[in-house]
Design a protein around this nucleic acid. Structure first.
Length: 108
DNA sequence: ACGCTGACTTGAA
DNA sequence: CTTCAAGCCAGCG
């Protein structure tokens, strides 16, 4: 299964507000668990994409905000997450396991 | 056309 | 426990 921009964006847009997912989960859903980097790379192309892609809800498997630097600011990603009710501390998502949204289980 | 890089993950040492 | 290496593959110089 090849990773396509449209697939990734579609999944990311389906992430509910107040929840987060991981690059690996998306890659796994697309059948390419070894291509998690491609997911991250695709997020880089999400800049200026319409409809808006909530890339701030996508973090690495530790809940770390690895991509915060690509939001134009170091705090932008954290601010966005916190505004959605996600607690972020020290660049990582608190109670990550609770807010984690797995597309493989919950995607309709 | 070639090689390096990267918003990652996993498994082994 | 931490550290390392490999697999993934599309851009960019």
């Amino acid at each position: 299964m090849k990773i396509l921009q449209g697939n990734v964006f579609e999944i990311v847009r389906k992430v509910p507000s107040g929840r987060v997912t991981t690059y690996g989960a998306i890659a796994q859903y697309l059948g390419a668990v070894r291509s998690a980097r491609m997911v991250g790379w695709i997020m880089n192309t999400a800049h200026g994409y319409t409809p808006f892609v909530p890339a701030h809800r996508v973090v690495n498997r530790n809940g770390l905000l690895t991509g915060k630097m690509h939001f134009g600011g170091e705090k932008v990603m954290q601010e966005l997450l916190e505004s959605e009710g996600i607690m972020v501390e020290n660049d990582k998502v608190c109670n990550f396991e609770e807010v984690f949204w797995n597309p493989n289980d919950e995607l309709q």
